[in-house]
Design a protein around this nucleic acid. Structure first.
Ligand SMILES: [Mn+2]
Ligand SMILES: [Mn+2]
Ligand SMILES: [Mn+2]
Ligand SMILES: [Mn+2]
Lengths: 219, 219
DNA sequence: CAAAGTGCCCAGTCACACCGAGGAAAATTA
DNA sequence: TAATTTTCCTCGGTGTGACTGGGCACTTTG
């Protein structure tokens, strides 16, 4: 049974390796995202390596083993299913669920997760548009584009967010840019890469590059 | 923030003190129900005492402080609300929920529990007939009688179980003695205190003293 | 090749939970 | 009351998990 901390490490390593496929994940990077010291990370990496959850060779970065990837994906599955529960059943807003799910993802009952999945109607996406891994670890890579990659004239529907911080999500709510919103890019300011967009064939707004880099759309 | 173990200790101490009001809870008794050694218990009692969660004077037994009772009742509240969720929403049987709830009761989000309570329709009783403490710790002491205290000719409705072990609950299911079942005592065998009962004005069965001591009824 | 950057290793800390043994204190019994 | 039994505290110690600063080894880059 993996500890809470181990699950958090594996999840972080999985996400980092997804962000840059092929590249091994570095100690400093892990320390950064987990808000801890490199020495602590090395310590944990050694232990996870001994448990066969990742390939650990000193100085070479790490990559997850099959088992490690499974634990990571299962943890992500639990996290996202609980988020769906919180939003769809308990009436949480999408900016309120992250911390709670961060704790619930460590519950250890496969039966519970199977029944929850069924209760929720086998959702495929969490409230932030992220795909929910299956029990066997299968996960669908969604076909998204970043809004920042759109050219003037192109349009799309908001499908997911890259960032789940409270201020960002609240900004999106206020701007009318929740999941499902229709976006049309009118103009791009080359100086700072901000975009002029039309939302839902209606209001025209200017969004910064910081925003457009964290929003996914599809046609 | 109390640790899992601390919450388990406080819950156990609360239940023991409820079982025998007025009597201080003894170290050995706690060790017994928590399946650990008296030395470990003394250790934890000292720590909980320092934290102001219980009154601890060596050799005198312990009793909970106001704060300690609050933590205990909150833990029990969480446990029982999750049990209701598991049974009413996820389709668990009442004999499957205990271990899962034992883990879920340690989640630390008051908002989550408030929303869950609302989602469940503010239930007053858990699937075993036990009362659910309010958020402020208020708890209704149900007016029950043990089946073992019934005399021939008396009857009642099954309202709660004293024991939540899997074999006991499965026995009750099979015998048709779930919550709500109507019982009429026909005869009592003075030798072993077993009872001949009629269930739901229908089948006549013999139940042992072991069973009747763990079943509550009300009129 | 040298400098800069990265990450390992060491030695240690701290918190938590647990335990056996021995003897002190309290309760019970004679 | 005295002796015996029971309870349980104290002590010293174990093990695990997680974290850390500092020094140095290794790798990368210029
Ligand atoms: Mn977490
Ligand atoms: Mn999410
Ligand atoms: Mn518990
Ligand atoms: Mn219960």
């Amino acid at each position: 049974m993996p500890s809470h901390t181990e699950e958090n490490y594996l999840k972080a390593i999985y996400k980092l390796s997804e962000a840059q496929p092929g590249v091994e994940v570095s100690t400093n990077r892990i320390a950064e995202v987990l808000q801890t010291r490199p020495a602590s990370v090395t310590d944990m990496l050694r232990r996870l390596g001994e448990k066969g959850l990742l390939h650990y060779e000193r100085y070479r970065g790490v990559s997850l083993t099959h088992d490690g990837r499974r634990v990571a994906l299962l943890t992500i599955r639990k996290h996202r299913l609980w988020e769906v529960f919180l939003v769809n059943k308990l009436g949480f807003n999408w900016d309120e669920v992250h911390d709670v799910a961060e704790e619930m993802e460590h519950l250890q009952s496969p039966l519970l997760m199977r029944r929850l999945d069924e209760f929720l109607g086998f959702p495929q996406l969490d409230p932030h548009g992220d795909p929910i891994p299956a029990e066997d670890g299968a996960i669908i890579r969604p076909q998204h584009r970043l809004v920042s990659d759109l050219k003037p004239g192109e349009e799309g529907t908001v499908m997911a967010v890259k960032n789940t911080s409270v201020p960002f999500l609240q900004y999106l709510d206020k701007a009318g840019l929740s999941l499902g919103a229709r976006i049309e890019v009118l103009d791009k300011v080359t100086f700072d890469n901000s975009l002029e967009i039309r939302i839902n064939n209606n209001k025209v707004t200017l969004i910064s590059n910081e925003i457009s880099c964290n929003l996914f759309v599809a046609d």
